[in-house]
Design a protein around this nucleic acid. Structure first.
Lengths: 158, 158
DNA sequence: TTTAGATAGTTGCAAGTGAGACTATCTCGC
DNA sequence: GCGAGATAGTCTCACTTGCAACTATCTAAA
């Protein structure tokens, strides 16, 4: 008689925890700045890199569908948080970058989010936090989930 | 100049990992048995407990919205994987339980899912797996995310 | 007993999202 | 230089899901 306790089943737990943590964080940028998750991901990617990126690149990095990124980009353009310039070398794509206004928002938001992350992890000791991050990394690696912080030119496959 | 590397940001990583792992697993019950995630959660809850449960209880346990559970229950009833009987003590609610057919599916599915979970965690040593589960538990606790395996009568609040 | 408020479950509605078609553009082999 | 296939980005469609309203029922207090 096989049994599976949902509460000991890691996939379920990861899914629940991911959703819960995500919801906790998104209140920070949704209520306060009107950003949704895809928009925040675009902002985060552009803010972290200094070079302008294509939408495709952001989609790959964040593992978000290109149509979702496209919509987020449209919205951010309307709110003048990002700007885009045509890439003269490849006129299919656009280069995206934060505007001054977008940068200001980013600078204001980041410390808040890092604080929230610390709150969530405050139940762990420094040692445990480190270990948790390491184990998370191993799992990500094995799922080939790390598009990580590589320069744009090196990212090709999804 | 504040910076936030999305790939080192735990909330993002948890969200991504949760989605990815969930997608990997759901192929197991979607493609093979036509179940979606809410349906699978209902099946898992009913299969794990031996007593019949109310929809409300399942919603609380799995932290899934009651309307989502309601739709899943309707679908499972149509497929004759579960059955429901009126609760004569409280005629607002129904008691749900797996049918024989539902049990058979459950019995067939569980080993597959446990195998998948092991595959996903196979990148960790036994010791690391244990530690990962422990740390996950600490975070869940601090987020008050454990409705865990308590008998129905003890679950009251969401 | 009556009534106000809580609770179980269902359903209509609106928002978000992935799949995939589509356009424009690029690349590579001939 | 040309045509086939790849790629960037947009858009429509269908599906999923959360919210909130609604019905039916229960509980507790006056």
């Amino acid at each position: 008689m096989a049994k599976l306790d949902l509460f000991k089943f890691v996939p379920f737990r990861l899914n629940r925890l991911g959703a819960e943590v995500s919801a906790a964080l998104s209140s920070e940028y949704r209520a306060r700045y009107g950003l949704d998750i895809p928009e925040w991901r675009v902002m985060a990617t552009l803010g972290f890199r200094n070079e302008a990126c294509s939408a495709q690149y952001i989609a790959q990095c964040t593992r978000t569908h290109k149509s979702t990124i496209s919509r987020a980009v449209t919205s951010l353009l309307e709110h003048e948080l990002i700007e885009r310039v045509e890439n003269t070398e490849d006129r299919r794509e656009f280069r995206l970058a934060l505007t001054r206004k977008g940068h200001a928002l980013y600078e204001e938001l980041i410390p808040r989010l890092l604080r929230r992350e610390q709150e969530i992890l405050s139940c762990l000791t420094a040692q445990e936090r480190k270990e948790f991050a390491r184990l998370l990394g191993k799992i990500e690696d094995s799922l080939d989930l790390v598009q990580a912080s590589r320069p744009m030119s090196e990212v090709e496959a999804y």
